[in-house]
């Protein structure tokens, strides 16, 4: 049953991700954004299968709820109609696909040939919110604080960038 769900969500994730990147029917950025939302939601499904419930919720809350809405907001602010009519750069696409396929082959081969890690195929961890929180505020408290400063800096930067007269 779980395996079935894994294959379902993995298929959905990859299909939607493909449609983000190369949708044969539309080159509208809004379509890409909507398929990215679907990718993220199916990835949240994969997280649930990995027993990372907190991460699944955060994934939907932060990515689908905030980041993608920001994307849509910006896409709508910019007038991108003209962009859709551009030709593809054929040479670039072909070489890109070839090189990416090579990289993918290397990845997959590396994954299957590497020695199996310790707890292979016997998942031990029961993902829970409480231990995660404890870990976050004990072992990782310094990165956590630095991250909050990073967010503050990003916020100030964005406000500065959004000012009309950029100096």
């Amino acid at each position: 049953m779980q395996d079935l769900f894994f294959y379902l969500f993995a298929f959905l994730t990859l299909l939607c991700a493909f449609l983000v990147v190369a949708n044969p029917f539309s080159r509208d950025p809004v379509t890409s954004a909507m398929f990215l939302v679907l990718t993220i939601v199916s990835m949240a499904g994969l997280f649930v299968l990995l027993h990372a419930f907190f991460l699944a919720a955060v994934q939907i809350l932060v990515y689908a709820g905030a980041v993608m809405v920001l994307f849509l907001f910006v896409i709508m602010l910019l007038d991108l109609k003209e962009e859709q009519r551009r030709r593809f750069n054929g040479f670039g696409v072909v070489t890109g696909v070839i090189s990416i396929a090579a990289i993918a082959a290397i990845f997959v081969k590396a994954i299957f040939e590497s020695p199996a890690p310790g707890g292979d195929a016997t998942p031990t961890l029961e993902g829970a919110t409480k231990p995660l929180g404890r870990m976050l505020f004990n072992d990782y408290v310094l990165p956590f604080e630095i991250l909050s400063v990073l967010l503050l800096v990003a916020m100030v930067g964005v406000i500065l960038l959004s000012k009309k007269d950029l100096k």
């Binding site: 990372a52 932060v62 707890g119 961890l125 993902g127 995660l132 991250l147």
Partner: peptide, 21 residues
């Protein structure tokens, strides 16, 4: 994180999500 029985991976995901935002 799931298959090695550590939560460190999940903490990393949390950080990556924040940085991505």
């Amino acid at each position: 994180s799931r298959f090695n029985g550590h939560l460190d991976g999940q903490v990393m995901v949390f950080f990556i999500t924040t940085v991505a935002a």
